[in-house]
């Protein structure tokens, strides 16, 4: 009785999990099917012949690699800038006392929730005026608008989790404030920094709206808008090719999931919900 109920539960639970994951499964299957098999009715659940031709065409015949390169530069630059500034800022917000600190923390949270569409028009004008439109730099600047409050907020709660006594001990032991930061706080914060960096990277990697508005040339276009241009500009939509692009676009994510998942859950616990 008990055994059969357990089995039933597992079947239902896994049924639901697979239903949720099905679109992703279908994405991979489609990307591996040869063109003629794609339009078979009824569709084949697993490809009868596995082909990598779409991936090959994606890399050789489309600007996919260029977009990919742009996205890597864009997301990495955003992450470095935001995590660098954010770490110092979070340290200051958590461990220093000065006038205006509370209102600053309020401002951070406020901007964390601010809709992008409010900022996008002034930012667009701003970039045009500075002559930065159609550059990766303009996107890095625009991405800090959402990534910095986000990273600050995460890092702030990681920082708050480091016992204050550790810093006090370092001060008594003869370190300056910055010395204590380097010797004691930074090593303790490292897991939090990694997890914040991952989240920031993913956020920047996936961003669409700013890229749509601020960049209009292949030279600076990241993957999100780039792949969508491939969809729109194609004479007839090549689903296999698009699915191959989707899979390739998710590769960094899959790597993170495979090796660094504990950092992701940690980040979730720290900032996203406790808020």
């Amino acid at each position: 009785m008990k055994m059969s109920r357990r089995i039933l539960f597992n079947v239902i639970a896994w049924g639901l999990v697979l239903a949720v994951a099905f679109p992703l499964f279908w994405m991979i299957v489609t990307s591996l099917k040869p063109g003629f098999e794609l339009f078979r009715r009824p569709p084949t659940m697993l490809p009868e012949t596995v082909t990598f031709e779409h991936y090959w065409r994606l890399l050789s015949e489309t600007p996919f690699l260029l977009y990919f390169r742009n996205s890597v530069i864009l997301a990495s630059a955003t992450t470095v800038v935001v995590v660098g500034i954010g770490t110092l800022g979070a340290y200051s917000l958590v461990r220093f006392r000065y006038r205006g600190r509370e209102s600053l923390a309020f401002l951070v949270l406020f901007t964390y929730l601010l809709p992008s569409v409010v900022l996008i028009i002034p930012l667009y004008l701003f970039m045009v005026k500075l002559g930065l439109s159609n550059t990766i730099t303009s996107l890095v600047i625009a991405y800090t608008t959402f990534a910095l409050p986000y990273a600050l907020w995460l890092l702030r709660s990681f920082m708050a989790g480091i016992p204050e006594d550790l810093e006090s001990a370092a001060l008594v032991d003869g370190a300056s404030r910055l010395g204590a930061f380097r010797d004691v706080i930074l090593p303790q914060l490292l897991p939090g920094i990694i997890s914040t960096a991952l989240f920031t990277f993913i956020l920047a990697w996936n961003e669409y709206l700013y890229a749509l508005v601020l960049v209009n040339s292949d030279g600076a276009r990241p993957l999100t808008t780039g792949v969508m241009t491939m969809l729109i500009s194609a004479f007839n939509i090549e689903w296999s090719l698009l699915m191959a692009a989707s899979v390739m676009m998710s590769v960094p994510l899959i790597i993170v999931f495979a090796f660094l998942q504990s950092y992701l859950t940690r980040g979730f616990g720290a900032g996203a919900v406790k808020g």
Binding site: P163, D165, L166, S168, A169, A170, L171, V172, D173, G174, A175, S176, D183, V184, P187, Q188
Partner: peptide, 30 residues
């Protein structure tokens, strides 16, 4: 005078040992 220049030493209730350093490094830190 900042704490480090007061010629004092302090033992904390939580011990406040530096988690990433060995015992030897902890003692040698000051």
């Amino acid at each position: 005078v900042p704490p480090g220049k007061r010629d004092i030493a302090m033992v904390f209730q939580s011990y406040a040992l530096y988690p990433h350093m060995t015992v030897e490094q902890n003692i040698a830190y000051p």
